[in-house]
Design a protein around this nucleic acid. Structure first.
Lengths: 139, 139
DNA sequence: AGCATAGCCCACCAACTCTATAGACTTATA
DNA sequence: TATAAGTCTATAGAGTTGGTGGGCTATGCT
């Protein structure tokens, strides 16, 4: 399941997409409009910034804004950053790989099945961007 | 991610599949062979029993055994039971549905995308059984 | 320079989940 | 009736999640 943090991240990104190239947006504005706890949102936005998805400006007239176009930010990137692995097992993860204890990947039926699930999921989230979250202007 | 509990469950079910229709298997036997903490395994097997997947016999000569054939137990069933929802959002779950707070499912891009992911995943785990975990006799 | 603005950073907390264990209880078989 | 083996309840430590508080730092305006 996606954490609440992830859902907040997507809401914020949706909002920022609507304001893309319209100047910085205040954290407090996002928090209010999307009903996200302000301080929690702060952490999320900062994380997105450090990952190069958002950028910010301090001081008066400052705020957060997208660093790339909405259709250049994949769902997979955001999920991995905020939520963690997409795969259902560490031994099957591309970005968070860890080998199995007590089990040989070469002859593990579960491993093979989870590779299938991973690929089916990636086929979607790698090919969708936060632009796709904008369904007739609402998020 | 699948919890450790889920992985243990699949290991145990794999082992019991290999012994299908060969009489009850001791918890301690499963625990030893599959390197699962015994008391933890106890809870897991009991849960599987209550869900109608396993059955057991007490007393001498007792143990656990599959209640249905390995190819009649879907992966989806076990995952839902031990791990929880398969969907990435409650508002998209078939068996653990909860409506979104602060968001209208009818016009939510994230919702629609997560439906896609859910269906892609279900397409696999609904059509695979624990029999498919038996790759040349190993689990 | 000085002040207000607004993001940055650090530390902390309560609640919950996950993993695991302990011990007493019940039932079945020989 | 002794013993084997599953059942049940409770608990505990570690880690994660969701959230808050307070001070620091950079920016822009006057």
């Amino acid at each position: 399941m996606l954490s609440k943090k992830s859902q907040y991240a997507f809401k914020a990104l949706t909002y920022l997409s609507e304001k893309y190239e319209q100047g910085p947006v205040l954290i407090s504005d996002i928090a209010k409009k999307k009903k996200i706890p302000l301080k929690f949102l702060e952490n999320i936005l900062l994380e997105l910034k450090k990952a190069g998805i958002l950028d910010s400006k301090k001081g008066k007239g400052g705020g957060y804004f997208l660093q790339k176009a909405p259709d250049q930010i994949t769902m997979a990137t955001v999920i991995r950053l905020i939520n963690g692995p997409i795969a259902m097992l560490p031994c099957v993860s591309l970005y968070f790989y860890e080998r199995c204890s007590n089990c040989n990947e070469k002859v593990c039926g579960l491993h093979d099945m989870m590779v299938e699930v991973r690929d089916a999921t990636l086929n979607i989230v790698d090919n969708r961007t936060i632009k796709d979250l904008l369904v007739n202007g609402k998020g």
